[in-house]
Amino acid sequence: MRRSAAKRVEVLAAAGEVVAARGADATRFSDVTAATGVGVSTLQYYFGTREDMLIAVFRHAAEREFELVGESLAGLTDPWERLLAIARHLGSDLSWRLWVESWRWASRDAEVRADVLADYTRWRELIAANIEADDPMRVARQVLALIDGLALPVVLGDPDVDRAAANELLEDALARLLGRSPAL
């Protein structure tokens, strides 16, 4: 990777932290400059507009999550174990905060909406490929709903749904959904 491309990736990661902390609407080039030491003119060179920077942040975060899940799946061959690895991933608080911000933008921006929907398609396809059921895509949609529904209280700090509780609930729900004995 060329040095400038590597620096752009570093800036995207740092900008993601700023967006997660401040929210997309409140994030400015100057905030990212303060966090990275990279000048506003360099940010404009990398991204063009602030909106383009935010879209790039969302895309980068989504790709990074796919990479991380791919790493956790490496070496796993059993579909059930692969499905559990996907469900347990849940992502970091940072990645979920960025995901929520991308949902907010997607509700108003057709380009971001297309990206978010494409990401959902990728997640559904990955999950469906590891489901042994009559209609794996339907079950994959249900699995995504479970993951999204449990990740939000985790990110918000719900004392009754920490990561361990969310993983336990996910495993139990997946087992029931797929006709396996729940691990209680």
Rank of each mutant, 00 (worst) to 15 (best):
W96P: 05
L177H: 11
E17F: 01
G16N: 09
A85S: 11
E171T: 09
A74P: 06
S102N: 08
A24M: 02
I86M: 06
V100L: 14
M1T: 10
R8T: 03
I131E: 08
K7C: 07
W99G: 15
R22S: 15
D172E: 08
T33W: 00
Y45R: 09
G75V: 03
T33E: 14
R138C: 11
L126Q: 04
A26I: 00
A114W: 00
A110Y: 00
A21I: 01
D52I: 00
R88P: 11
T77F: 07
L54C: 13
S95V: 05
M53V: 01
R122P: 07
E10T: 07
R122L: 10
I55C: 14
T77N: 15
A164E: 14
W103R: 13
L43P: 12
E17L: 11
R22Y: 03
S41G: 12
P79S: 11
T121E: 15
G37H: 06
S107H: 09
D119V: 02
M53G: 13
E17Y: 03
A34F: 01
P136Y: 02
D25T: 11
A175N: 07
A56H: 06
V57S: 13
D25V: 06
G75N: 08
G39H: 02
I55T: 15
E111I: 01
G75L: 08
V161G: 12
R141T: 08
E101K: 04
A35C: 12
L84C: 15
E101D: 14
L126Y: 03
M53D: 12
A34W: 00
S30R: 06
R3E: 15
W80Y: 09
I127T: 09
A74H: 08
A166K: 02
R138W: 00
A74N: 07
R138L: 12
L76V: 05
A87V: 00
E171I: 04
E51L: 04
R97G: 15
